[in-house]
């Protein structure tokens, strides 16, 4: 008997907008898929591409990166820097063969609790449809096997 596949999604969010938006979704009693693990960071500018690789390394099936809308950054331009970085990193991941569908980016403000809840639901369904990220999981398994001498 096989269990239904539940995707593991890691969300890297900025504390001033998306985390507050998620908080609003919670206090508004909005129900959304429980598949997402939130990691709160000071700003999207703090989100290093290394975090994305680490999440994949630990077996994530999908990743969400989210922060303040352009112009709304608490630190005035952290998200502009982040946007450039995402544009480059996204095309790099695509070129390496990590499907762009698995790494999602969004702008969610502190007032957009509904958008947050809906987004989590949609990306959970999308990743569920894609299935587990078996190609990458294969690499992880290889690291756990004993070295052949």
């Amino acid at each position: 008997m096989s269990e239904k596949f539940e995707p593991k999604i890691v969300a890297f969010v900025c504390t001033y907008c998306t985390y507050a938006g998620a908080d609003l979704a919670g206090t508004s009693r909005l129900k959304y898929a429980p598949n997402v693990r939130m990691v709160r960071l000071p700003c999207t500018g703090r989100i290093s591409p290394m975090f994305i690789l680490k999440a994949l390394q630990k077996g994530a099936d999908g990743i969400l990166i989210s922060g303040c809308h352009p112009g709304d950054c608490h630190f005035t331009h952290g998200n502009y820097h982040a946007r450039r970085r995402w544009m480059v990193f996204r095309s790099l991941l695509d070129f390496i063969g990590i499907p762009t569908d698995r790494v999602k980016y969004s702008w969610i403000s502190a007032a957009e609790g509904v958008k947050f809840a809906e987004l989590i639901n949609t990306i959970t369904e999308e990743i569920r449809a894609l299935g587990p990220f078996t190609q990458y999981h294969g690499l992880i398994e290889e690291t756990q096997s004993q070295a052949s001498l």
């Binding site: 502009y80 820097h81 450039r84 995402w86 544009m87 480059v88 762009t100 980016y105 969004s106 987004l119």
Partner: peptide, 14 residues
């Protein structure tokens, strides 16, 4: 990557 333009255009951010 240490600079930006306010009108950098991307198509993928939801």
């Amino acid at each position: 990557l240490a600079s930006f333009k306010k009108d950098d255009t991307e198509t993928f951010i939801l």
